[in-house]
């Protein structure tokens, strides 16, 4: 298969995979973010924060399995190149995900004296995972180059992604909690919002400077015009969220969902930016989705399944969010 005879299946699969990564970043993003923000000084706040994500984290993390699964299924060659290149950060990320995943359960079941330790494990694990994910993203964007520039960029990206996750986590808390914690979350959201904005600008600039091909893609023609509305929209979102957060809690909690919505918009835009920069490459500037795709009959087999099952997954995901709708309460078995 080559570019001259593009098959539509790889395109569908890159779309599905991208969607899964995006959904993952949003959903697990907020629960990772809540983990990163876990305060060391207030056990009640910690409890409420963890209750707010308790019913969701497992399903959220399944989107990662799905995204990696799709990469594996549809583009096996790319999958092995990417994960051999990202060997150590992957291991670190997994260690972080393991620590936080089990802390959820151990913290209430282990001997009481250990509860606080598990909370720290939860925070530390979340932080490790977000940093590693950001770092991996940075390595990917710089085509896994082994230069200091690339490593510096990846470290920057690690911090930005962590800021982004913390922002969406704080926004989630503004939506799901009340009282002191909500006010506190609004403060966190404001700070991380600024950090994220700075991060996005830095990453965009660095990205353009590092790579000529990406520069051409954005600034090399008429498409430069689209950069203007995008910048405006980004700016508007950042500023309006910042102003709203000043006022939290509003009377009757009006618009408590707004920061979360704004976070989703920002995530979608960042994601589309990256997708546009690299399409049709799956391993940056080395292997396209068409070179890496699996055999057609295999893609077809899984496509049929996905077409049937995905709507069901979306359906019961919505159902589960509905069951746990509204402000967080204590979780009882």
């Amino acid at each position: 298969m080559n570019i001259t005879s593009p098959d539509w299946l790889p395109i569908v699969f890159i779309g599905l995979m991208g969607l899964s990564f995006l959904v993952y970043a949003i959903l697990d993003g907020y629960d990772l973010g809540v983990g990163v923000l876990l305060p060391l000084d207030n056990p009640q706040h910690r409890d409420s924060m963890i209750y707010s994500i308790g019913p969701f984290w497992d399903a959220n993390e399944t989107w990662l399995v799905m995204a990696i699964g799709l990469l594996l299924i549809a583009f096996p060659k790319a999958h092995s190149i990417i994960f051999q290149a990202l060997y150590l950060p992957t291991a670190v990320m997994l260690a972080g995900l393991i620590l936080r995943g089990v802390s959820f359960d151990f913290r209430t079941k282990a001997p009481s004296v250990d509860k606080q330790k598990w909370d720290y494990a939860f925070k530390f694990g979340s932080l490790l995972a977000t940093l590693a994910q950001g770092y991996m993203l940075g390595r990917y964007i710089t085509s896994f180059e082994d230069s200091w520039l690339s490593i510096g960029f990846s470290s920057l990206s690690a911090i930005c992604v962590t800021a982004g996750y913390s922002f969406i986590g704080a926004a989630w808390l503004v939506m799901k909690t009340e009282g002191d914690l909500q006010k506190r979350a609004a403060k966190w959201a404001q700070k991380t919002n600024i950090l994220m904005a700075v991060g996005i600008v830095a990453v965009c600039l660095a990205n353009l400077l590092i790579d000529q091909q990406i520069m051409d893609k954005w600034l090399g023609g008429i498409q430069v015009l689209i950069v203007i509305p995008i910048t405006l929209l980004l700016g508007f979102t950042f500023v309006s969220v910042h102003l709203y957060l000043d006022k939290v809690p509003m009377e009757n909690d009006i618009g408590c969902w707004f920061p979360f919505l704004a976070a989703i918009i920002l995530f979608i835009m960042c994601f589309c930016g990256i997708a546009y920069s690299f399409y049709p490459y799956i391993v940056p500037f080395e292997m396209t989705i068409f070179d890496a795709a699996s055999a057609r009959e295999s893609l077809w087999f899984i496509f049929v399944g996905a077409a049937i099952v995905l709507p069901m997954i979306i359906g019961y995901t919505i159902f589960s969010y509905k069951v746990f709708w509204g402000k967080t309460t204590k979780l009882n078995y």
Partner: peptide
């Protein structure tokens, strides 16, 4: 690939989504 994919699609999401209702619901 497809066998693992079907596991994720048909099984993992089902477990993970209804688990919380089973536990806390």
């Amino acid at each position: 690939g497809p066998l693992l994919g079907y596991e994720v699609l048909t099984a993992f999401f089902l477990e993970a989504s209804f688990l919380s209702i089973m536990l806390f619901g």
